[in-house]
Amino acid sequence: MTTLIKLEILRTLRNRRYLFFTVAYPALMYVFFIHAYGAANQAGGLPVKTYFMVSMATFGAVGAVLTGSAQRISLERKSGWTRQLRLTALPGRAYTIGKIAASAVTTLPAILVVFAAGAAQGVSLTAAQWAGLAVALWLGSFVFAALGVALGYAAAPDAVQPIVMIVYMAMALLGGTWFPVSDSLEKFARFNPVYLYNHLATFTRPGQSLDTVAVAGLGAFLVVFVIAAAALYRRDTRTA
């Protein structure tokens, strides 16, 4: 499993499309959003520069693991690589966990580059807040890595990409990525993992602590997505 994780990480970091769309693109979008908001100084209870730094970091992280893992799995299924792996001593649970772990590790560049852009634009956080936010967003990305693996096995290989993009954009649109969620939508957004993911940053507000409800919600989603990924992998094994 360790070898598989290393290979997956190296393969991802060598992908130029990954480096642009999940590392550089969110940072460019961050600069666009803070200039588009102009004189507005608050968004979702946070300074505009901080709010969109978090939302673009989560946008890049979700994109890195959701589209990356699902599309790689679809290609592996189509080429027969997954079938070859099943002939090795690698157990199914190790394959699933390895895919999730490798995908989540590759989110760090996406998060850190946006953080660097935020710092350059004047986002002011304490050292503990910077470190805590980076750790919270990285750990939260495991939820979407598990979802990506599940989606990679949920549909036929040729249909995975459009399905992932629809799920990805819908969650981002209703999860506060592009704009703060209004009160009328918030009761529905609480069932959206992207909304909960963005809420991990609330402890950076003065007098606020880590949103334990968001943490619990993401934990529940992680369990559901891991179980779904394992079940879909076993289903694919039976039909292969």
Rank of each mutant, 00 (worst) to 15 (best):
residue 1 M to G: 09
residue 2 T to H: 13
residue 7 L to M: 14
residue 8 E to V: 06
residue 9 I to P: 13
residue 10 L to T: 09
residue 11 R to M: 07
residue 13 L to I: 14
residue 16 R to L: 07
residue 17 R to M: 12
residue 19 L to C: 07
residue 21 F to S: 10
residue 27 A to K: 06
residue 28 L to A: 14
residue 28 L to W: 09
residue 29 M to T: 13
residue 30 Y to A: 10
residue 31 V to L: 14
residue 32 F to V: 12
residue 33 F to E: 02
residue 36 A to G: 05
residue 37 Y to G: 05
residue 37 Y to D: 07
residue 38 G to T: 05
residue 45 G to K: 06
residue 47 P to V: 07
residue 47 P to N: 09
residue 48 V to P: 01
residue 48 V to L: 03
residue 49 K to I: 03
residue 50 T to A: 14
residue 52 F to T: 00
residue 52 F to V: 02
residue 53 M to P: 08
residue 54 V to Q: 01
residue 56 M to A: 04
residue 56 M to T: 10
residue 58 T to F: 00
residue 59 F to H: 11
residue 61 A to N: 10
residue 64 A to N: 06
residue 64 A to Y: 02
residue 67 T to I: 02
residue 67 T to R: 01
residue 68 G to T: 08
residue 69 S to G: 02
residue 70 A to R: 00
residue 70 A to E: 02
residue 71 Q to V: 03
residue 78 K to S: 15
residue 79 S to K: 12
residue 80 G to K: 05
residue 81 W to T: 10
residue 81 W to Q: 11
residue 82 T to A: 09
residue 82 T to L: 13
residue 85 L to I: 08
residue 88 T to L: 07
residue 89 A to C: 07
residue 89 A to V: 12
residue 91 P to Q: 06
residue 93 R to F: 13
residue 94 A to L: 11
residue 95 Y to H: 14
residue 97 I to K: 06
residue 97 I to Y: 12
residue 104 A to K: 06
residue 105 V to Y: 10
residue 107 T to G: 12
residue 109 P to M: 03
residue 109 P to I: 04
residue 110 A to C: 08
residue 111 I to C: 05
residue 111 I to H: 10
residue 114 V to R: 01
residue 115 F to D: 00
residue 115 F to C: 08
residue 118 G to Q: 02
residue 127 A to C: 05
residue 129 Q to E: 15
residue 131 A to Y: 14
residue 131 A to I: 15
residue 131 A to L: 15
residue 133 L to D: 08
residue 135 V to W: 13
residue 138 W to Q: 05
residue 139 L to P: 05
residue 139 L to M: 09
residue 141 S to F: 00
residue 142 F to P: 00
residue 143 V to R: 01
residue 145 A to I: 04
residue 146 A to N: 04
residue 148 G to L: 02
residue 149 V to S: 01
residue 151 L to R: 03
residue 151 L to A: 07
residue 152 G to D: 02
residue 154 A to H: 02
residue 155 A to Q: 03
residue 156 A to N: 04
residue 156 A to F: 04
residue 156 A to D: 03
residue 157 P to T: 06
residue 158 D to Q: 11
residue 160 V to Q: 02
residue 162 P to M: 00
residue 162 P to E: 02
residue 163 I to K: 04
residue 165 M to D: 13
residue 165 M to A: 11
residue 165 M to R: 11
residue 166 I to M: 15
residue 167 V to T: 11
residue 167 V to R: 02
residue 170 A to P: 06
residue 170 A to C: 08
residue 175 G to V: 13
residue 175 G to Q: 08
residue 178 W to C: 06
residue 179 F to T: 06
residue 181 V to C: 06
residue 182 S to D: 12
residue 183 D to Y: 04
residue 186 E to W: 06
residue 188 F to W: 14
residue 188 F to R: 05
residue 189 A to Y: 08
residue 190 R to W: 11
residue 190 R to F: 12
residue 191 F to D: 10
residue 192 N to Y: 08
residue 193 P to A: 12
residue 194 V to P: 13
residue 194 V to C: 09
residue 195 Y to Q: 11
residue 196 L to H: 09
residue 198 N to M: 09
residue 202 T to S: 15
residue 203 F to H: 13
residue 206 P to N: 10
residue 207 G to Y: 08
residue 212 T to N: 04
residue 213 V to I: 13
residue 217 G to K: 11
residue 217 G to Y: 03
residue 218 L to R: 12
residue 229 A to P: 05
residue 230 A to L: 15
residue 231 A to L: 13
residue 231 A to Y: 07
residue 234 R to P: 09
residue 234 R to I: 04
residue 235 R to K: 15
residue 237 T to M: 13
residue 239 T to I: 15
